[in-house]
Structures are given as C-alpha cells and as structure tokens.
Amino acid sequence: MIRRLLDTLYLAGGAVAALAILAICLLVAAQVGLNILARVGGPAWSYTIPSYADFAGFFLAAASFMALAHTLRSGVHIRVNLLISRLNPRATWGLELLTLALATALSAYATRYAISLTHESWDYGDMSSGIVAVPLWIPQLFMDAGLVLLTLAFLDTLVESLRARRPVIADAGEA
C-alpha cells in the first residue's frame, strides 16, 4: 500500500518533469515559428513571446528538481561501482547503508534551506527581472517539492535496504 503510494509519487514527479521539458520545447519552437513568420510576413508580423527565455529557465529548474526522486529510483543517477562491486555482499550492504544515510541527511539539509530560500522570496516579494514579472517563489516551489521527494526517496531506499539486507537500487544500464 505505502509502497504503491510512494512509487506513484516518484513517477508523478517524473511526469511533471517530462511535461516541463515538453513545455520548454513547445515554447521555444513557438518563438522560432514566430521568427519565421516575421521573416516571411515582414515586420508587421513580428511577435515575441514575452520573457520566453526566463520561462524556459524556470521550466528547466522544475524539470531538474521534480525528476530527482524518479531518476534515483530508476538507477540513473550515476555512481562509481568498480570498487564496491569487488567487495563481499556484507561490506557492500554496509557501504550502501552508509552512503544512503549520508545522502538522506544531505538531501534533508538542502531541502530545509531551499524551503527557507523560497520563504524569503515570498516574504520580500522577489520578482524575476524580465519583461514579465514572475514572483520567484512560484518556480522555487518546484525546487522545494522536488527536494522533498528526493529526501523521501533516499529515506525510503535506506529503510528498504535495511530490511532487505542488500542494496535495492539496480543500476540502469549494467554492462
């Protein structure tokens, strides 16, 4: 039950990230389309999507953070395996727990400060500096949500690995 819920959460984060990447693509392609229109139709036909570069940047941030947990659970975040793969299973398991504990702590720490950064942006009413004024806390919320998911995924993996008495994340493309 909880397993299903968590996996759905990670996947949902990944889906939001994928949509954000699609949004970058459509936004930029639309602007290129408008540029072509202006070339063909002359200056009377020139239109710009205001602040499209800013928006593409914010979508990129949302994509990068929201996919963190899903990417972790899919085994795509990379690590050096050459050395640990030569150890006995017990030592491998021990090191896995150690690295997961470090990663959980670090991720929780980053989450705490990311949230306080967002809170500050909200408090002071920080705005993006482009043609369209975007309150910065809005894109920063995606950073916070993504980091919360990542912390959860690290913790989840730590607990799972403790119970299973072995590493539980398989590497995506073992060769």
């Binding site: 940047g57 953070f65 980053a110 990311a114 950073m143």
Partner: peptide
C-alpha cells in the same frame, strides 16, 4: 553554508543557456 547551498542550487538550475541540454 546552508543558505549558500540553497542559493547555488537555485541560481544554477534555471539558466537559459542550459535549457537546450534536455532538448
């Protein structure tokens, strides 16, 4: 260090010049 960490995570994740990478 915590605040600097958050600033670097945010400041280096939304740059336009990186937007072409996922594409």
């Amino acid at each position: 260090q915590g605040l600097v960490l958050a600033t670097s995570l945010w400041g280096h994740s939304h740059s336009w010049s990186l937007a072409s990478l996922p594409l």
